[in-house]
Amino acid sequence: MDFEDDAFVLSARAHGEAGAIVELLTAGRGRYVAHVAGGASRRMRPFLQPGARVIARYRARVSEQLGSASVEPVGEGPAALFDEPLALAGLSAAASVAAGALPEREPHPGAFFAFEALAGALADLDIWPAVYVRFEAGLLQELGFGLDLSKCAATGSTDDLVYVSPRTGRAVSRAAGEPYAERLLKLPPFLLASQGGLGPGDIAAGLDLTGHFLEQFVFAVFNRPLPPARVWLIDRLREAGRL
């Protein structure tokens, strides 16, 4: 089984003296884990960082086997963000959420392109937290738990959608949701239209929203909490006054 694909590194752990076990999010084949010979070497370590873009060549004798991969870096990678503490936290969170949520060897091109969009936005602190929320919403969509924000689940109205049902993931209008407001999740306007500006509390509401569904429908299935990297990101954003 051989293939070559664009990929993002999600994680890399030293294996033996010089090798590494690398988790990749490939464009066309989803999440793959592979042994990279020399992955702990001085030459390869710089680009085997979470969020690094690579071209991966994967090879395994049989499909059930842990294959080996050679990787070639594309672009500057996470080094471009070394001076941006919040962006580093965002990158780590995205990598660990993708690694924990996506099943292995199942094509999810949408997840790859959502990660790509986020990686491209991380240099701009004013926009990337919203892109991060969209990334998680896109991940849910890829996994079959997409939010249905097209119309109100109760009235069918497409106007004034401000809540989401925590049970179904469907939007609820202000009028229909008002009596149950405390039990509903807030729907930030930027998830409805990319042109809408960000208001105070919108990022926090977005992270609450995607976090609820990731926790309930994705991570709880594996009896796992949301990744610590995501908790760390929210703490850092809160401390920086970005929530």
Partner: peptide
């Protein structure tokens, strides 16, 4: 000069 190293440095 890694993601973890620089995260630690910022912290």
């Amino acid at each position: 000069a890694t993601v973890d190293g620089q995260t630690t440095a910022h912290y």
